[in-house]
Design a protein around this nucleic acid. Structure first.
Length: 255
DNA sequence: ATGGTTGTTGGACAA
């Protein structure tokens, strides 16, 4: 079971790249973030033509998340918080697994209203994660967490210390979610690796200089972590023309 | 120190 996550940064601007990647990599499930379109603008026809079902929570201009899957989902849930005006969370049951595609708020500038929203969102995610654990099903939470977990996950920890993605409070809630019993799939399999980035800013030649961040993650419940085979970051799409600023992360679970 | 890039959208805003 190959599950991927990719912040696509505008699915309509990226549909060619996306189709090529899906055809080459043939994931069973692909979690998308920042589709930046309303649900009825999602390129459903093109995704279906590749042999996938699509579950979409869209929004005009910003945010928007989706789950595409070879297998049909048997259940679906949209949104994390009651009346969240931002489309950032979608969850589906696929086979025996519960899979979520999430786009955690950036939270800058911090401190401030946006950072408060980020922290509140993280607390709600934690509450949902706890509930999902209790199902004792394999749970896979994937997406753009906008969290830099540790110094080795950023090119300049000092320079990022006050940023919403790296502030102590952000990392503290991240660790508290791990402490519920979730595994950071990439870090579990690559414990000391540096420069395991999934995002490079468009500006100032960040990609060319490999000045990146590891902010796209898979969190696995014990039932999913027991089946963890591999977790890889595919840098190839970031090098393409008209690339997203994020690149896909891929997890493989034994059946 | 500042600006630098991109997508959506039609002047900024978000990242």
């Amino acid at each position: 079971m190959k599950i991927a996550s990719w912040n696509i940064n505008g699915i309509r601007a990226r549909i060619g790249l996306l189709k090529d990647w899906i055809e080459t990599e043939a994931p069973d499930v692909l979690l998308l973030q920042e589709i930046k379109c309303e649900t009825d603008q999602f390129p459903l026809f093109e995704i279906k033509a590749l042999g996938y079902h699509a579950y979409v929570l869209g929004q005009k201009a910003y945010n928007g998340v989706a789950i595409i899957s070879r297998q049909e989902a048997t259940d679906m849930r949209q949104g994390l918080m009651k009346d969240d005006p931002q489309a950032r969370y979608i969850e589906a049951q696929i086979g025996d697994m519960l899979v979520a595609s999430l786009y955690l708020p950036n939270g800058n500038p911090a401190p401030g209203e946006k950072y408060d929203y980020k922290l509140a969102w993280m607390e709600q995610l934690k509450t949902r994660a706890e509930a999902l654990l209790k199902t004792e099903k394999p749970v896979v939470l994937g997406g753009d967490f906008n969290v830099i977990p540790a110094p080795e996950d950023v090119y300049d920890p000092q320079g990022w210390q006050n940023d919403a993605l790296y502030r102590p409070q952000t990392r503290q809630i991240w660790r508290s979610i791990l402490n519920l019993g979730f595994t950071d799939a990439y870090r579990a399999l690559h414990p000391h690796e540096e420069k395991s980035y999934t995002f490079w800013d468009y500006q100032a030649g960040a990609w060319q200089k490999d000045l990146g961040l590891r902010i796209d993650h898979f969190l696995l419940s014990p039932e999913a972590a027991s089946r963890l085979d591999s977790c890889t970051i595919d840098r190839a799409p970031r090098a393409q023309e008209k690339a997203s600023d994020h690149t896909p992360i891929v997890v493989a679970l034994t059946p």
